[in-house]
C-alpha cells in the first residue's frame, strides 16, 4: 500500500483527474448556457460525439491538434445547427429531438469509424504540454496541474469568462431573460429566437471542443461511443451548478477525480470492480442533494419553445 500514496502516483492521479474533467467542464459550461436561455439540450451527447469524431479526423489528417479542435468545434456546431433549427426556430419537442440527435450521432460516428478506422485503429501522438514555469516545480501539484495542453488552461479561463458574460454584459442578461421570461425580452425589442440560437450554437461549439479534447488528448484515438455518457454528465453538472460557471468547474473536477481513480485502481492492481468507483461521484452528489436539497433554480421557461404572440 505504500506505493499507492507516493508522490508520483498522487500527481498522476490528479493529472488524470484534470484530463477527465476538461470534457465534462466544456460540456457543462455549454449546457449551462443553453439552459439559461431556456433550451434543455439533451442532444449534447450527440454534439460531443460529432466533435470527437471530426476532431480526431481533423487532427489525424492534418497532424495539427489545434486544427483538430477547430474541426471538432465545427462538428458540434453542425449538430447544434440542426437542434437550433428544429427546436428553437420551429419549436419541436426538445427532448424528442435531443435524444434523436444523440442516437443518430452515436450510430453515424460508429458507422464512419467502422468504414474508416476499424482495421487500423490509428492513434495520435501524445499531446505536447505547455509547462508553466515556476508553478510546475511545486511537488505533486506542479506536474498534476501545470503540465497540460494549452487548451486546458483556456478552458479554465473560460469559466471566468462565462461568469463575466452572465454578470456584466448585455448578452448575458439577454440569455437569462430568454430562459426566464422570453416574452419580456421580446417586448424589450430583443429577438428571442436569435438569442436562443446563439446559446445553442455556443453549446455545440463547446460540446464539440470537449469531444475533440476527449478523443485527441484524453484517449489519443476515436472509438465508437467514446463519450460514454459525458454529455449526460454535463447536463447533470449544469443543473447542479444553478447557473454559476464556477460550480461547473468544481463539479467537473469531482467527477474527474473519481474517473481518474477508476484507472488508477486498476493500475495499482486493487481488486474492486471499477463499477464501485464509478458509482462514487453520483453517490456523493445524491447524498449532497438529500442533505441540502433545495428547490433547483431552473429558468422558468426551460424546455418551452417560444412562439411569438402565442399565449
Amino acid at each position: 500500500m505504500t506505493g499507492l500514496f507516493s508522490e508520483v502516483f498522487l500527481s498522476a492521479l490528479l493529472f488524470g483527474a484534470v484530463t477527465a474533467a476538461i470534457p465534462l467542464l466544456l460540456a457543462g459550461l455549454g449546457e449551462q448556457m443553453s439552459e439559461k436561455a431556456g433550451v434543455l439540450n439533451i442532444g449534447i451527447e450527440g454534439m460531443m460525439l460529432a466533435g470527437a469524431y471530426l476532431g480526431f479526423v481533423g487532427a489525424f489528417y492534418s497532424g495539427s491538434l489545434w486544427l483538430g479542435f477547430l474541426t471538432g468545434a465545427a462538428g458540434g456546431i453542425a449538430v447544434a445547427l440542426v437542434m437550433a433549427l428544429l427546436c428553437v426556430r420551429i419549436g419541436l419537442n426538445q427532448i424528442v429531438i435531443g435524444i434523436a440527435l444523440t442516437l443518430g450521432l452515436e450510430g453515424l460516428t460508429a458507422l464512419l469509424h467502422h468504414f474508416q478506422f476499424s482495421r487500423s485503429y490509428p492513434r495520435l501522438p501524445a499531446a505536447d504540454a505547455t509547462v508553466i514555469p515556476l508553478l510546475s516545480n511545486i511537488p505533486v501539484i506542479g506536474p498534476a496541474f501545470f503540465k497540460h495542453h494549452l487548451i486546458v488552461y483556456l478552458a479554465v479561463a473560460l469559466v471566468f469568462g462565462m461568469s463575466y458574460l452572465y454578470r456584466r454584459t448585455q448578452l448575458g442578461l439577454n440569455l437569462q431573460a430568454a430562459g426566464d421570461k422570453p416574452a419580456a425580452l421580446d417586448v424589450a425589442g430583443i429577438d428571442v429566437i436569435r438569442t436562443r440560437t446563439i446559446a445553442v450554437l455556443t453549446t455545440g461549439a463547446l460540446a464539440g471542443l470537449g469531444g475533440a479534447y476527449l478523443a485527441n488528448v484524453g484517449a489519443g484515438l476515436f472509438i465508437p461511443f467514446i463519450t460514454n455518457g459525458a454529455g449526460f454528465l454535463g447536463i447533470v453538472l449544469a443543473m447542479l451548478a444553478r447557473g454559476r460557471p464556477v460550480w461547473v468547474l468544481f463539479g467537473a473536477l469531482l467527477f474527474g477525480v473519481c474517473l481518474s481513480l477508476t484507472t488508477a485502481m486498476q493500475v495499482a492492481g486493487i481488486n474492486i470492480p471499477t463499477d464501485v468507483i464509478q458509482m462514487l461521484p453520483f453517490l456523493a452528489v445524491m447524498i449532497m442533494l438529500v442533505l441540502f436539497g433545495r428547490r433547483a433554480s431552473l429558468p422558468a421557461a426551460l424546455g418551452i419553445p417560444y412562439e411569438r404572440g402565442a399565449r
Binding site: F232, L240, D275, M279
Partner: peptide, 27 residues
C-alpha cells in the same frame, strides 16, 4: 421524495440514479 418534498428537479436525480443503477447492477 426529493421531488415531492424538496422540489429537486427529477431530470437530474433520475439521470444520476440511472448511472448509479447501471453500475450497481453490474456490481
Amino acid at each position: 421524495l426529493l421531488r415531492a418534498y424538496q422540489g429537486v428537479n427529477e431530470i437530474i436525480t433520475t439521470l444520476m440514479m440511472t448511472f448509479l443503477g447501471t453500475s450497481f447492477a453490474n456490481v
